[in-house]
Computed example of a mutant assay.
Amino acid sequence: IKTLLTFISPAGKEYSKADSRWLVSDPIIVSVEILTVVLVSLIALLLIHAILNDKYYRHFLQIALSVCELYGGWMTFCPDWLLGSPHLDTSNWLHLWIYLLFFNGLWVLVPILLLLQSWFRLRNLHALRSDTTATKKKKKL
């Protein structure tokens, strides 16, 4: 744990150069992170279990986790955008393109890809169920 914290602390300090809200106890950031640590972490652990054990509730958890991540990202950045981004350093290309856009973009891209995966899987299951139901109806006739 100490090694992990030693790694995370400098990374957090470096990221705070792009988003100064991470240097202080910004109530929006703290609120989102409390929810993330408590609820989203539990959903993520359950999702790992569901994926590894091919559980029926896998896509429900995957959708819930993805929506939580997208909502958390929105609530992290939208209030600051509405204020004119006073806490975001967009003047430095590294802070803007790598820290703010690339790394935060991953937190948008991955949930969207997971949502699409669940969408197509559920659509295919529905189509399979519809085909099975239609076949049963034809046999009864």
Rank of each mutant, 00 (worst) to 15 (best):
Ala11Met: 12
Val67Asp: 02
Ser41Met: 10
His59Lys: 01
Asp89Gly: 04
Leu116Glu: 06
Leu141Pro: 00
Leu4Gly: 06
Tyr57Val: 02
Thr6Glu: 09
His59Arg: 06
Leu113Ser: 11
Trp74Gln: 09
Phe102Glu: 03
Glu33His: 07
Lys138Met: 15
Ala50Met: 03
Asp89Thr: 03
Thr6Ser: 11
Ser9Cys: 05
Pro86Ile: 04
Val30Asn: 07
Glu33Phe: 06
Val40Thr: 13
Leu35Ala: 13
Phe77Lys: 02
Glu69Asn: 13
Thr6Met: 09
Leu83Ile: 03
Lys13Gln: 13
Ala18Thr: 01
Ser31Ala: 15
Ser25Gly: 06
Ile1Ser: 12
Asp26Gly: 04
Lys55Tyr: 01
Lys136Arg: 15
Val24Arg: 07
Ser31Ile: 02
Leu47Phe: 09
Leu113Thr: 11
Leu65Pro: 08
Asp89Trp: 01
Lys136Cys: 02
Lys139Gly: 00
Thr36Pro: 00
Thr133Val: 14
Leu106Cys: 08
Leu96Lys: 05
Leu39Gly: 13
His87Arg: 02
Leu65Trp: 02
Val32Leu: 06
Leu47Gln: 03
Lys136His: 10
Val24Leu: 07
Leu82Tyr: 05
Val30Ala: 09
Ser85Asp: 09
Ile34Phe: 08
Gly72Ile: 02
Ala134Ser: 14
Ser66Phe: 03
Leu128Gln: 12
Asp131Thr: 08
Pro10Val: 11
Leu113Lys: 00
Ser66Leu: 04
Ala18Met: 13
Glu33Lys: 09
Asp26His: 08
Ser25Trp: 08
Thr3Arg: 09
Thr36Ile: 07
Tyr15Cys: 11
Tyr15Trp: 12
Leu82Ser: 05
Leu100Tyr: 06
Ile1Cys: 10
Trp119Met: 11
Leu115His: 10
Leu83Gly: 01
Gly105Tyr: 05
Glu14Ala: 15
Asp26Thr: 08
Ile51Asp: 01
Ser130Gly: 00
Ile8Trp: 05
Gln117Asn: 14
Cys68Phe: 12
Tyr56Lys: 05
Thr6Arg: 14
Leu116Lys: 10
Asn53Arg: 14
Phe7Ile: 15
Leu52Gln: 14
Leu82Ile: 07
Cys78Leu: 11
Lys138Asn: 07
Val108His: 00
Gly73Leu: 06
Ala44Arg: 00
Ala127Leu: 14
Trp119Glu: 04
Cys78Val: 14
Phe7Arg: 10
Leu70Gly: 08
Gly12Asp: 04
Lys13Tyr: 06
Leu88Thr: 06
Ser66Pro: 04
Tyr99Ser: 07
Ile112Asn: 08
Pro27Gln: 00
Lys137Asn: 08
